[in-house]
Structure formats: C-alpha cells, structure tokens
Design a binder for these strands. Structure first.
Length: 830
RNA sequence: GCAGGUAUGCCGGAGCGGUCAAACGGGGCAGACUCAAAAUCUGUUGGCUUAGUGCCUACAAAGGUUCGAAUCCUUUUACCUGCACCA
C-alpha cells in the first residue's frame, strides 16, 4: 500500500455532497428523544474567510455535536452569521461596495469553507443578523424594553471626533485618536444616548453564575466584571445643597479631609467658584490633551486635580472640607464624587501628599502606631484596626463600626446602606450605518415616538453614500418620516444598535429561524433551549456572555420561556496563534488559511491536528508540523482498512477496545481531545498488529468519526455499516470483555523486551552479538509466553526459544533459569 | 497598579502527592527494506554504571510541608490575558 491510496480529496468531496443532498443534519423536534443543543458562537463573516481559530473552535463544536448524536440525542447544531457591525462596514467602504453585498459575498465564502471542514450544521436554520427578517426582532425586543423601561435615553459622555463630526464607538478610538484621523484626538462629549438597563439584572447575573457549569476562571471574570460593592451612601452638604457620595468605608468617615469630583462630571460647573474658574479651566484643558490610553500601560496615571473653590460639610464632624476636581475619579460610578480619606486609601493618600492636604488617622492598627503628622505618614493604612479620632465611635473595631455608622446614618436620615455595581448600563447607540436601526422617531410635537410593532422592520436604506459621518443622517428620504402618533413630520432615529445586541438572543432564533410572525414559537424554544454546550473564546466572557445572559433574563420576564440561563455549560477554547506565537493577522504576515491545509492534507487531518496537539483550552501556536502526524495517522488507518482481507476476533483487542471506549468517551465529554486521540491511536496501533474482527472495526470507526468524519464514512461503508456513520451508535463498552490481566501480561512482555534489548546492547558494546534468545519461565506461565513467541522474535530480531524452568531438556549454559520469578522470566542471550 | 493564567526533556505537549527520567506526537540518531532515496517498519533519544542493575542530576529560582513533590504551600523571576484609579 502506498500513501496515494488515501485519496482524501475525492473522499471528502463525495461525503460532503451526500450529507448535503440528504440534509441529514437537519434537526426536528421530537418529544420522544432527548434533545441536545450544541452551539459555537456564530462568526463575524469577513472577506478573508475562515481563519485557523474558526477551524479550531468550530471543530470542537462539531466533535461535540457528533458525539451527542452518536449517543442518541436529538442534536441541534446550527450556524449563523453575525453580519452587522463596524468591521464589515469599514471593509465594505474600503472595497467600495455596499456593506450588504460585501456581507453576502463573505457569507457564501464562509459556507463553502465550513462545508469543506465537515461541520455537521443544520443548514436549514441559518441566521443572518443583517437580514431584516432577523433584525426586526432586535427592534421588537427594543420596543419591549422601551415599554418596560429597560431601554432609556440618557446624556452620557461619549467619544467624539471633531473631524468626522460624529460620535465614535470605543472600538474606533485607537490610542486616544480617531481611527480615521491619526492626528486627531478624540474628545469627550456629553450626548443623548440609548442605554439598556442591564444593571437591573446585576444581582441575578451574579447569583445565576453559581448554577452554571462554566470554568471557575470564566465565572470569576464575570463576577469581577459585575463587581458588587457593599457600602453606604452618605449625604454631604455642598453650597446649601446635597451631594450623596458612595463609599465602601463608612467607618473612615471621620478621616475625610477633602472631596474629589470627577473632572468629567456634568455638574462640575456648579462647584467652581469665580476665583477658581481660571485654574479649573486650565486643568480641564490639560487633562483633555492627555489621553488615558496613551499614558496607560506603564503604571498609574498621575493623580492630578485642582481646587474648585467649594466646600463640603461632613455630616458627622460638621467640618468643611475642600472639594477638588480630579482626573482619577470615575464620573459615572456612584455619584461621581468621592470622600477622600488619605490616611486609609492609597489614591487619596497620593493626592493629599501631592497637594499638601492634611491626613487624619482614624483607624489605628493593633500592633503598631501610625503617627499623625501632616505628610509624615509613610503610606496609607488600609487594614483593619480600632477607630480613633472618631467621636462617639472611638474604640470600636472598624469592621463593626461600618454597620453602626450606617445605622446612625439611616436614623438621622443622612444616608443609607448601598450596593454599587461596577457593571454599567449598556450603551447601545452607535452612530453607524451597518447596524440594526433603533425603531423610534422624533416628532417635534410628540417627542420620542416608538415605531409600532406593525411597522417593523425599520429597514436600512439600501442606497448609501459614505462620506461624512453616519450615512443615515444624510439620507433625507430615509430620515424624514411621519410621526406615528400625530401624523406630523418626524425624523427617524439614526443611531443603530451595538452588534452585541444581535448576538444576545440569536441562539433562541435558531429554534425557529424562519418564523415571520413571531420572534419564535415558544414551544420550539422550550424544546431546544437552553444551550446545553456553548463553546467560545475567553474574550467573550465579559462582553457577549454577560449580554446574552441579560437578554435571556429579560425575555424570560416577558414570559416567552421559563429558563433563566442561556448556556448551561460553557467551554472556553484556547486561542490559535501564528507560528511566531503572535496573534494571526495579515499585517504580521503569519496567517495560515485552513483552506490551504485542507487542500494539502484534507479536512480530516486538519481537524484531528487542531484538536489533538494540546488540550483545547490551552492557547497554541499554529505550526504546519502538527498536521504531519495526524495526516500520517489518518492515512494509515485508511490504508489498513482498505487493504484488510480477513477479520478475526482477538480477545486482547476486544479488551483494549472496550476499555478505550470508556476512556475516550470521558475525554470527549471533558474536551480532552488530546488524550482521547492518543487512546484512539494506541488502539489502532494495537489491533493493526494483531488483527481485528469486523464488529470491533466498526466500533473503532464510529469513535474515529467524531474527529475524522469523512474518512470514517468511507470506512464505515467499506466495513458494511448501515446508513451514515454520523448516525450510528456510539459503541457500548462491555465490561465483561475487559481483561485487566492482559495488561499485566503485556507489561511483563514489554519489560522482557526492554531487558533483552538492554542486554544485547551491552553485548554489542563488548564486541559480541546475540542471535538467539532463551527465555526461562515458571511452568504456569509457559503458555502465555509461548503465545507471544513470534511477537518476541519480531520485536527483538532474535530467534526465540522458551522453556519452563523445570524443563530438563532446556538449553541453559549460564543457569539463567535460576533468575526466573513469577512475571519475570530468566533470559539468556547467545 | 489590580485580577487571572502559564513556566516540564531538542521542540510541541501530557502529568496535578508515591508505580516519573516523565504519556503521546514531532525532530534527531541507529538499524531493516532499497542500487539509492522517499515512504514504511524496528530500536534509541539526561549522565554514569550494569547481562536484564544500581546511582547521580533533572520538571523556571529559592525556601517550606511530607516517610515521599514536577505535582501541595510561601516568596521571587519571566511571559501571556483581562480591567484600567469603581472609592
């Protein structure tokens, strides 16, 4: 047999066609069968086509889907395209074609490649977010959110490019500059924007994590992202009015020596006195010219600030402390102003030192003393201790003081217990063309008017002129419309939604992707959803996976279904880097196209290589070398079975097979494909030496089929399997066939061979050479060794004679038979 | 800066308290086949030693826990990822 016999090109093409013609992977609801919903995050279709990362991740999903199918589940494994969004728009502009056309082209290219990879999608359910049949339901959800007060409009600081005359998404800000104007700094402007009130669900998003089968790492990331902080809101009197500030350390209230308001705060102006106006303006100008991102990377941004001229009254001490404007206070967290306790907070300490503000110690550690002298304290003490200088609260442990101070606040109506989340409401407005239009209009008389459901979808105009800013703004025909309330003149909202909105519920649409009357049929969603196994990269944990959970909870609250979480199990795959260890990108010139690899080695080999070089949750660097071994293996398997002329049952093979089935199954379930593949390979090596019966051969092929479905189909047919191997049954391990004593025997023989080669090596070094091997075994083991004598000859290359130690006629010049022990025969080489 | 992750032999990468000089693959070396090569097959791949043995040095570095550590703990170093001062 030669390598040429494995004609993967024709095999793969052939089966791809058969699967497609037969529509065999289309899923149908079947109440009698247990469902399994496996899902890969749908890709962003780019003109460049599939990359290695796709090839890897989607293979993981496909393996899982195939495995579950073999296990008898009714599997839903769909595919779709996250087609709206900035990169597509940019690419289209660059290519000089409309985004729609660009996207269509990209998608059809993707599909072709996906089919070549052998991924077993249900192509009848494809979802394309740029299709108005899809995004009308984005709009529908938005209207529901508006109705429930979950979508709202608010002024917010946004990135603005003065040259483009438009607001930019965060992704469009590169190093503090506009993506299109490298020399133009982005400005922060306060503009009206659409928000989704994800914070309403903050607690549930946090709690829900406990029940999910996600990695601890993923859960931790989400927890940190949501960032729940317990503390208090305390009202300070400022210029006769009230400012309430949030703190997690109400116990340090007596140590407040100044306040800091965010320099970006909308109400900053109210605080600035006439005398200080000049200084403040100078300061604001200065920090505006220095972008955070440019400074970032190396250490902290220098804390800077300026006195506003106003004072705040501490409700406990009744003392007035100065209010500074500072660059280090976040405007939209808490109230955008903080109480500063330099003695017990590092940031406040740095600031106080810099501007010569007094530092007042109020928490005294147990084992040493902090000297309270202006600027003489070496650093902020953030640990626990006893309250001092704190009026009636002196002597109380600071931890206990927190509760006491909060009760006092509440009693005196000076504040209250409060919980803050790091998670902000989701700003979904994008001033871009290629997104879901937000379905509202602005009427001079009626204000904001939602587009009625019956008028959906609000479609994107097909004629677009790119140039200055958002093309929707300059499209008068599209822009001007009638008010749905009064019939008067109205303008459409020109903001479109963040693309993360589309991907926040697409998994539900797969259950009923063609429904034109409803977002989906609840019965169908109830059958298929939630996702049983979701697969995606680590980068999605803090964005997409938060959003999709939020949307799920909102839609559940609408009564559309009853489950709480979109994805019960989540597998975080590693990232495939280029050969140089860097992220694959065109500019680095380290991109390897999956299609090229399929051409060269076949999809089966590529799939096998991608998932088995390392544990799939680890990052890897692509190296064409990894595919050599896989290709060699697949070829060998194909050649073995296509050349086999007789089948025979072998107990040892049966034992190994049954054991392997169990182990491989477990590994697949845990995404340990690197280990599963090793076991499959070892099994193959084993039976290719000893022979195999047909039934076992089929079982082997079924296992192989999750990794190498094309060649497995071919071999399945060759071995007389019925139907498609893709719908065969995962072999059931038969414990009674597993003979663990065989393992022992093998280990013994293995050791024997090792010893023999060791001895013959030594003989060689001494100038001698051995031709014959004499083995002396204890009588009870004689048969076991005799069975293996031809194998021993083959492996050692020596002529082999095996004797029982009590055999009187044995040839044993050096009396090596005396060395024989149970499980360890004596050896003589000559 | 904070959080999380990683560190294994020539390379990729398993291993997660003893059975570990360390799975499996790649590469190297030696041998078989061949006129020769490719492919394939066999053996070998830390050092010393030995008729199948024993010893030494090894799993980023240094300490520690343990009868026993690549595996657990502490500190350090390097790299990767995420978040950027969330009070």
């Amino acid at each position: 047999m030669t390598k040429g016999d494995y004609n993967f090109r024709s095999i793969e093409k052939n089966w791809q066609k058969k699967w497609e013609m037969g529509k065999i992977f289309e899923a149908k609801e079947d109440k009698k069968k247990k469902k399994f919903y496996a899902l890969d995050m749908f890709p962003y279709p780019s003109g460049a086509g599939l990359h290695m990362g796709h090839a890897f991740v989607f293979s993981l999903g496909d393996i899982f889907a195939r495995f579950k199918r073999l296990k008898g589940f009714n599997v839903l494994y769909p595919m779709g395209y996250d087609a709206l969004g900035l990169p597509a728009e940019n690419a289209a502009i660059k290519a000089g074609i409309p985004p729609k056309k660009y996207t269509e082209k990209s998608i059809s290219n993707f599909m072709k490649q996906q089919k070549a990879m052998g991924w077993s999608y249900d192509w009848s359910r494809v979802v394309n977010t740029s299709d108005s049949g899809f995004y009308r339901w984005d709009q529908w959800i938005f209207l529901k959110m508006l109705e429930k007060g979950v979508a709202y409009r608010k002024r917010a600081p946004v990135n603005y490019c003065p040259k483009c005359e438009t607001v930019l998404a965060n992704e469009q800000v590169v190093d503090g500059k506009c993506w299109r104007h490298e020399d133009t700094g982005v400005e922060i402007k306060h503009l009206e924007q659409w928000f989704l009130k994800i914070s309403d669900y903050a607690d549930e998003l946090l709690e829900g994590l406990n029940e999910l089968d996600w990695s601890d790492r993923a859960k931790k990331l989400q927890r940190n992202w949501i960032g729940k902080s317990q503390g208090a809101e305390i009202d300070f009197e400022v210029n006769g009015g009230k400012w309430s500030i949030f703190t997690t350390r109400p116990d340090t209230i007596y140590g407040v020596t100044f306040m800091v308001v965010s320099a970006q705060h909308e109400r900053l102006g109210e605080l600035v006195t006439d005398e200080q106006k000049k200084d403040v303006d100078k300061f604001l100008k200065k920090i505006k010219s220095v972008s955070m991102k440019t400074l970032g990377g190396e250490g902290d941004l220098d804390k800077e600030g300026v006195f506003t001229g106003s004072y705040a009254t501490n409700p406990f001490t009744k003392k007035k402390v100065p209010i500074y404007a500072g660059n280090f206070v976040v405007a939209d967290y808490g109230s955008g102003m903080v109480m500063a306790v330099p003695a017990h907070d590092k940031r406040d300490f740095d600031f106080a030192e810099k501007y010569g503000i007094p530092i007042k110690v109020v928490v005294e550690p147990k084992d040493y003393e902090i000297y309270e002298r202006n600027g003489q304290i070496p650093e902020a003490y953030t640990g626990d201790g006893t309250l001092v200088n704190s009026g009636d609260f002196d002597g109380i442990e600071n931890r206990n003081a927190i509760g006491k101070i909060i009760s006092y606040l509440e009693k005196k109506k000076l504040g209250k217990k409060s919980i803050q989340f790091r998670l902000r409401d989701w700003l979904i407005s994008r001033q871009r063309y290629w997104g879901t239009p937000i379905p509202v209009v602005y009427c001079d008389d009626c204000g904001i008017v939602p587009v009625p459901e019956s008028e959906l979808p609000v479609e994107l105009p097909s004629v677009v002129k790119f140039g200055k800013g958002n093309p929707l703004l300059t499209n008068e025909k599209w822009l001007n419309t009638k008010c749905f309330k009064c019939g008067g003149k109205a303008r459409r909202e020109t903001d479109t939604m963040d693309t993360f909105a589309n991907s926040s519920w697409y998994f539900l649409r797969y259950a009923d992707s063609k429904n034109e009357k409803k977002i989906f049929d609840s019965k169908k969603v109830d059958y298929w959803c939630p996702i049983d196994q979701y697969i995606g990269g680590p980068e999605h944990i803090t964005a997409h996976l938060i959003y999709i959970r939020f949307y799920t909870k909102f839609l559940r609250d609408l009564g559309l279904f009853s489950f709480d979480e979109p994805a019960l199990r989540y597998f975080t795959n590693g990232i495939v880097h280029g050969a140089d260890g860097e992220k694959m990108s065109k500019s680095k010139g380290n991109v390897v196209e999956p299609l090229d690899m399929i051409e060269k080695y076949g999809a089966d080999s590529l799939r096998l290589a991608l998932v088995s070089t390392a544990s799939p949750d680890n990052d890897t660097s692509w190296d064409e070398k990894i595919i050599f071994g896989s290709h060699k293996f697949v070829s060998k398997v194909y050649e073995y079975f296509s050349g086999i002329n007789s089948f025979k049952e072998d107990k040892a093979v049966l034992s190994k097979l049954n054991k392997t089935i169990l182990l491989v199954e477990k590994d697949i379930q845990n995404f340990k494909h690197n280990l599963a593949v090793i076991k499959i390979r070892q099994l193959f090596d084993y039976f290719s030496e000893r022979g195999i019966d047909k039934e076992s051969a089929r079982k082997f092929v079924v296992m192989l089929s999750v990794y190498c479905p094309f060649v497995a189909e071919e071999l399945w047919k060759l071995l007389g399997g019925k139907g498609f191997v893709s719908f065969a049954s995962w072999p059931k391990a038969d414990d009674s066939k597993i003979d663990s004593s065989l393992d022992k025997k093998e280990a013994e023989i293995g050791k024997l061979i090792e010893d023999v080669s060791n001895i013959s090596r030594i003989l060689n070094e001494k100038g001698g050479s051995a031709k014959a091997l004499y083995v002396y075994v204890i009588p009870g083991e004689l048969d076991g060794y005799l069975e293996n004598s031809s194998m021993l000859e083959k492996k050692t290359g020596l002529s082999v004679k095996i004797y029982a130690v009590n055999d009187k006629k044995k040839y044993d010049p050096n009396n090596k038979s005396g060395k024989a022990k149970p499980g360890k025969p004596g050896i003589y080489l000559e």
